[in-house]
């Protein structure tokens, strides 16, 4: 069987590990930022709402690649020289890539949760307030859990996209799966074999995410509902 030698497969698996690390770190970051954004966005204070809108619009309308380049080449210039030097010695590509990916995904996740929010009648929040819950409590115990439930399919889609989008970071030298695939392709010119192996690995990762997502969806589904 002619596919790829062990040495190359091993190199690709290394890339896969980097991809997964990048995905997990940026997802956690993205989700926390997104929840914060949603809560701020739901307040009555217009300045806060405007800022969140601006944040979301920027990330939605500028290609991820440009955003990643901005974080890698633009942002560190604002740091003091010593911090920068330290950062560059400690895999700056990886951490800056995770930040860029996470912040970008946060904008989308926030929108997905907001879509979920819209499916919940305002009366629920009013009821929570009437029962003595303050703004944050009403959001936390009544609205957000339901919104998340509605948003689960969209969020799974978002997680998948984030997983696949990690490949954009190869532009700044993060040695993830696509980076390694291109490296091997460049060494051997065996384009179909390398891209085939990479595609198979992405599919495997994606199916795992879908599987976990389906579990979460089932867990959150309303019992007796159409999709329980």
């Amino acid at each position: 069987m002619y596919l790829l030698e062990a040495q190359y497969l091993y190199q690709m698996l290394g890339g896969m590990v980097t991809t997964i690390q990048l995905f997990i770190v940026s997802w956690v970051l993205a989700f926390s930022v997104a929840l914060t954004l949603v809560v701020i966005r739901a307040t009555e204070w217009s300045v806060a709402r405007w800022l969140v809108d601006a944040y979301v619009e920027y990330h939605r309308n500028v290609p991820l690649l440009v955003h990643v380049l901005f974080w890698y080449f633009g942002m560190p210039e604002l740091l003091p020289e010593s911090v920068r030097g330290w950062l560059y010695q400690h895999n700056a590509e990886m951490s800056l890539a995770a930040i860029a990916l996470g912040l970008g995904a946060a904008a989308y996740i926030a929108e997905d949760i907001r879509s979920g929010l819209r499916a919940i009648p305002d009366t629920q929040f009013e009821a929570a307030r009437a029962m003595g819950a303050n703004y944050l409590q009403g959001m936390r115990y009544v609205i957000i859990p339901q919104a998340l439930r509605h948003a689960v399919p969209a969020l799974i889609g978002r997680a998948l996209l984030l997983f696949k989008n990690t490949s954009v970071t190869m532009a700044i030298g993060v040695a993830e799966l696509t980076y390694q695939a291109r490296e091997i392709e460049n060494d051997t010119y065996r384009t179909f074999a390398t891209y085939g192996a990479a595609t198979a690995m992405y599919l495997a990762g994606a199916f795992l995410i879908m599987f976990i997502g389906a579990r979460i969806h089932a867990y959150y589904a309303i019992s007796g509902g159409r999709n329980a």
Partner: peptide, 18 residues
């Protein structure tokens, strides 16, 4: 839907091309 969503667009384009 599952398979398409599991493949990075970059790879999908590449495969479609050939």
């Amino acid at each position: 839907v599952r398979v398409i969503r599991g493949i990075p667009l970059l790879m999908l384009i590449f495969w479609a091309y050939f």
